[in-house]
Design a protein around this nucleic acid. Structure first.
Ligand SMILES: [Mn+2]
Ligand SMILES: [Mn+2]
Ligand SMILES: [Zn+2]
Ligand SMILES: [Zn+2]
Lengths: 145, 145
DNA sequence: GGCAACCATGAAAATGATTTTCATTTACAG
DNA sequence: CTGTAAATGAAAATCATTTTCATGGTTGCC
């Protein structure tokens, strides 16, 4: 679930005075993990944190919570490679890019151009395209209030 | 699972003589359903078939099997709107298009242009883009044998 | 027709990813 | 300190999808 606004991850500040807001452990840990392992699943993030153990080992549950929080704040982007689990990556505009996923070896080729122009044609020389997904997620006119 | 070639949906003809191949009930039913309800989940397809009941009512299990078969043959395309379930649509090139999914009301706006050019800019006038996914699925060079 | 192999189907069980619940700990404000 | 609210993790619950298994239907052949 991309987590709507209702149970919105216990807002991280609520009634507490503003200066109280600090980097919650799990959120910080997940961000750190995602800088190291890109396109990672929640489980992979948890594993990475438990291996490179400092004060950062957190539970799978908390990883999911932090990920949902970060997706809600658009700091992290969920990815679907149609392999049955959600993958995540940092949503820094600097490294905006797309993916070519091999359905056989699962290799992910990063394409760091975005203006889609002739991407597909360029790609077709080496990659056998079976299909592509292009989904834009956001708020429609009426939902923007 | 997008179903690799291993357990490949019991090939539908195998040792039987070629002319034996006929439209298996569940595959036919699913195709018919997808012509009526676009972007449908397996459950929605099953529901539609049970409502518009003729000789087409089939089990959820068979719907999944037929969908995996059709995806493998590229007749059906799986879609991910990041809502936790896979949606499907016919892969006829004639109606090739993309989607804008509202994360609040789940409304799906169909965009029937594909040459991506200024799609995003055009969209931005009415749609508040939170993020977009563009994934190309296929076979990398080494996997094409 | 009758037989044998093969295949399609559905019900129920199993899986696997993700979310929820609940009890416990931690952190801060006063 | 002390009380309140947030953060956390373990276990249970969900939920979509796959697998297993038993059964009945087709097909090709004698
Ligand atoms: Mn990436
Ligand atoms: Mn569509
Ligand atoms: Zn490959
Ligand atoms: Zn909307």
């Amino acid at each position: 679930m991309v987590f709507k606004s209702d149970n919105d991850f216990q807002m991280m500040k609520t009634t507490r005075s503003p200066h109280t807001v600090k980097t919650v452990k799990s959120v910080h840990a997940v961000l750190e993990a995602l800088q190291q392992v890109n396109h990672a699943t929640a489980q992979e993030i948890t594993d990475w944190l438990s291996v490179s153990k400092r004060d950062n080992e957190i539970s799978l549950t908390s990883v999911y919570r932090a990920l949902n929080h970060l997706v809600g704040k658009a700091e992290v982007k969920p990815l679907n490679f149609n392999d049955g689990q959600v993958r995540y990556e940092l949503n820094t505009q600097k490294m905006h890019h797309h993916h070519f996923v091999c359905t056989q070896c699962n290799h992910v080729q990063v394409v760091d151009v975005c203006p889609f122009e002739q991407i597909l044609d360029t790609l077709r020389s080496t990659f056998l395209i079976q299909y592509h997904n292009f989904e834009v997620i956001g708020l429609c006119e009426s939902c923007q209030n």
